[in-house]
Design a protein around this nucleic acid. Sequence first.
DNA 1: TATTGTTATACTCTATAACTATA
DNA 2: TATAGTTATAGAGTATAACAATA
Lengths: 156, 156
Amino acid sequence: MATQSQYEELARQLSAIGAVKRGLSRILPPECPTGSAAVLSLLGQHGEMRMSRLAELLAVDMSVTSRHVAHVAEHGWIERSPDPADKRSRILRLTPAGTDMLGLLAQRHIESLARTLSDWSDDEVGQLNVLLDRLRASFGDCRAWAGQHEHTRTSA
Amino acid sequence: MATQSQYEELARQLSAIGAVKRGLSRILPPECPTGSAAVLSLLGQHGEMRMSRLAELLAVDMSVTSRHVAHVAEHGWIERSPDPADKRSRILRLTPAGTDMLGLLAQRHIESLARTLSDWSDDEVGQLNVLLDRLRASFGDCRAWAGQHEHTRTSA
DNA sequence: TATTGTTATACTCTATAACTATA
DNA sequence: TATAGTTATAGAGTATAACAATA
């Protein structure tokens, strides 16, 4: 168990990390904003999948996923083929153009991070990756989360 | 220097960390969304300051800062007094109500994180805090950043 | 009747540009 | 002329709710 102070600090750090994310998003081509990049990245990592699975991996509502996927499909980076097992579903799959775009994104991310984190050791970057992955897992596990404070009005 | 693979992984982790941030934002009272919470937090940490300083700490444009500050002031959580040294500026300062709200936010963050990260040691949380702080610093230092790819259209 | 996915609507956060007041 | 801050406008991301098609 960590101290209250550490939890407060972590909340501040997570709030501030938005600046880093914005920095990384600025290097993306404008046709491929962060939402599209996330879709491509997950399809590249996990291979073909359905909308519902993608929404779960993105950790956003399926309506949001639907819009991102529509944008990515309009650009020809993915194809949506009918799911023979369930006519309501479609299978999402990277196209060659999508794979190319994914390569471009990786290249830009690597360039930026290599420059920005030039004084980090590989061990430190590895540690951060491990901790961030665990953080995500800890939050993902805890699905008894939503509606806990149910957005109560306060008098403060 | 880290490997390309580690940089790619870090980019993915940062993209995915949004889910954690959204989780934390859901426990906030609806009158005090993340933008307002960030303003209160920084004023609590650093004490009174001017808009321009706050914008720098938030790492967002001053126009954005201005709107957050207006919202926070409307709720009576801060006061804006004229700066005697520069009539264009106003000094921002937490009110007692703002301090109360800050306390409520801290309490909710602590509750949530203590529950979610119950199996983390204090050392691990501390490590993550250190690395996130350093990450922010590395990006903050690198101000020769913007306009590097200048949003070039790509053919990919 | 329940589930998959889409669309309409609304809200938050952010950036750019135009503007006011002061330095 | 330059700087501090505000406001108008636009764009991206997300959530809720209503809807269509299929299970």
